[in-house]
Structure formats: structure tokens, C-alpha cells
Design a protein around this nucleic acid. Structure first.
Lengths: 182, 182
DNA sequence: ATCCTGATTCAAATTTAATTGAACTCAGTC
DNA sequence: GACTGAGTTCAATTAAATTTGAATCAGGAT
């Protein structure tokens, strides 16, 4: 089978660095795009590298292969693949023959955005809401010194209410984002 | 004037830490909410602290006052206020009398989301698009070893086209996000 | 039961990003 | 035109996050 059909098995470190761990220009360029994206969203660059390599690869790739090809550690790839899987950015390819599991990218933007929001934003959202709801107007009275005027209290109250509408909007709109953008 | 009407002038470090630099429970709680938000979006916590303090303060605050109250450095506050201003999260309050400029928070979610997207995401978006458009199918041919099959080339091409639709969607939807969520 | 291969974990090392603060700039005052 | 007070800049520091890799685990084969 041609190299493009079967991924090389990585046996020795020597082989890994001389044969496998050299990216094509296209792979490098594509990976660079995804790295830039992940950085923009405050995600580790390894995520972009892994997803980028999968995106550039017609065949599903194993963890080992990714490690060898990108030249990053097993640990990073393991954690990276787990995260990508939880947000639905990659799919394991069932392959009874192979001992090791392989992955291919999910290329639907809807899935990625939806997964990211569901896994990373929404959980935080509930925390914000809870915290905000627990804030009491009395907590704004200084422990010592002059208390805030009634007008001040009123204004703070208005702002707290406003903040609660933020949460409501976010809880309404964010889950729809994936559908909207895909 | 009551303390709630005029912000104390900070003269000495001693005064700063003993008098000014003690947040009320309400301020601390509100700041914690905003800090949590900034962290979620990969922004520095100082942004959350500054915006949170402004949000909790009926009166516009000066840079000096914020420094003293939060106990963080002039540099951080200077940079933080600049960023918040560029995304439109705060507004300078014109005050001919005062030597120093004061700020109040913009509490419309629409403005914040819109500003963030405009200043941080959209500029990146063009970079992604350019980079992607510059990728050539030929770049995926391995420098040495077996070239990819026609089927592989076709699949990579499909993916590149898919990626371009991501950009189109993003360029269409992101600028609308502010309006949508506000 | 043991070995072997691939995957996972997590404390330590590294890298990256944020914060600090001293030096500097700028504008208004005396 | 030097002085003052507010604000900015940026190199050095500190803090936070990611990455590493040795130890460990899981499970299929011998």
C-alpha cells in the first residue's frame, strides 16, 4: 500500500524524526491557520496543531502517528484529542483490525462552534448567573465610613438587574450560535 | 460632600492601603463575576477587576482611584482602561473641572460583545481568510516519497473549500452577534 | 499469569502571558 | 521655563498555563 493509504508505523525515534516528522508545506500552512484560530480563542496551540494535521490528512490518524508527525509529546496529544472529542471536533473511526484508534476531523463549523459553546461557555454561564443572583444590595454598604446614598443604591440595583438580563440573553442566544453560524 | 459622592484623593501609600484599598463585599462579589467572565474568554483578570469596580461604582472613577482601590499597578490599569475603551466597554466622562479623566461602564451587552468582536475577532478573521486563500493544492505533495493519490487531492480540496465557507459564515454572522445578543 | 502495545495521568519543567514599577512624556501652573 | 501631577511605555519580574515524560494503567495476545 502506498504511503498515502497507510500511515507509517513509528518504531524508532530515529525514524520518527527523519521520516515521519516532516510536514509538507500544505500541512504546515493549514496547521498555521488553525493554530492562529485557537490562539484567538485562548486555546492551547497544540489543539490547533492536532486538528490542523487531521484536517490536512485524507486518512484517519492514530495518536502515535500524530505525536511523531508533529513532534509534540504523547501527553499533549492525548489531552488534545480528548478535548477535541468532547467538543465534537473529531470523530474516532471504528476499525476492528487496527489495535490503535484513529481519528478524522469533523469539518462542520456548526459542530465545532456548538461543541465549544456547550462544553466551555455554557457551564461558566450558570456559575455567573448563580453568583450574580447571590449578590445582595446590602453588600454594597461600606463596612465603615459613609453609607451609599439611596440614589446610589438605586443605580447599583439597576445595574445588577441589567447584568441579569445579560445572562438571560446569553442563555438564550449562545446555544443557538452553532445553528446560526453553521 | 459625602464619600459616596466624591472619590477620595489618594495621597500616600499608607492611606491607599488602609483607607481606600478595601473593597466592600458587594464590590468583591461583582468583581469576581466579571473576573470569571474575562477568564472564560481568555482575557487578563485585571480587565475584569477594573470593569467590575466601575460597574459597582455609581460615580465615574479616575485611573488613580482604581489603582488605589484594586491595589494593582498603574501600568495594568492604564493598559486595561485603554483596552476597555477601544472595545467600548467604558466611557470617559467629560469633566472640565477635574484634572484627571474619569470613566463609567457601558452596561449594554450589545456594545461589549460588538466591540470585542470588532476589535479582537474580526481582524484575525481577515488573516485566516488570507492565509487560507494562499494555500495551494500542490503544497500537499510530499517533498519526497509517494505523492498523494488523486482521490486524496480531491478530498483535501473539498476540505479547503469547506474551510473557506467557515470564513464566509463567520464574516457574515459575527458582526451581527452584538445586535443579536443585545 | 505475563508480556506487549497503546493510552492516560500528573508532577515537574518549560513556555507564554500578565503584571509591575521606574523612567519617561505631556499638559497645565506658577 | 522649571515644577507638578496624571498618564504612558516597556524591560524585567512574576504568575499562569501549557507541555513534557516517566510512571501507570488497560486490555489483548502468548
Amino acid at each position: 500500500m502506498a504511503a498515502s493509504m497507510t500511515q507509517p508505523t513509528v518504531d524508532t525515534p530515529a525514524e520518527a524524526s527523519s521520516e515521519v516528522n516532516r510536514l509538507t508545506t500544505g500541512e504546515r500552512e493549514l496547521i498555521a491557520v488553525f493554530v492562529q484560530m485557537t490562539q484567538t480563542f485562548g486555546l492551547p496551540r497544540s489543539l490547533g496543531e492536532i486538528y490542523g494535521l487531521l484536517f490536512a490528512s485524507p486518512q484517519p490518524l492514530s495518536q502515535q502517528y500524530i505525536v511523531a508527525r508533529l513532534g509534540i509529546s504523547k501527553g499533549s496529544v492525548s489531552q488534545g484529542l480528548r478535548f477535541l472529542r468532547t467538543i465534537g471536533a473529531i470523530q474516532p473511526v471504528p476499525d476492528a483490525n487496527e489495535r490503535r484508534e484513529c481519528f478524522m476531523p469533523v469539518v462542520e463549523l456548526r459542530a465545532l462552534v456548538g461543541g465549544f459553546i456547550r462544553e466551555r461557555i455554557t457551564p461558566q454561564l450558570s456559575l455567573w448567573t448563580d453568583r450574580t443572583n447571590n449578590i445582595n444590595l446590602d453588600d454594597f454598604k461600606a463596612d465603615e465610613g459613609a453609607p451609599p446614598s439611596p440614589a446610589d443604591i438605586k443605580l447599583i440595583n439597576n445595574r445588577l438587574e441589567k447584568l441579569k438580563t445579560w445572562h438571560q440573553r446569553a442563555e438564550l442566544v449562545l446555544p443557538l450560535m452553532g445553528k446560526l453560524i453553521g
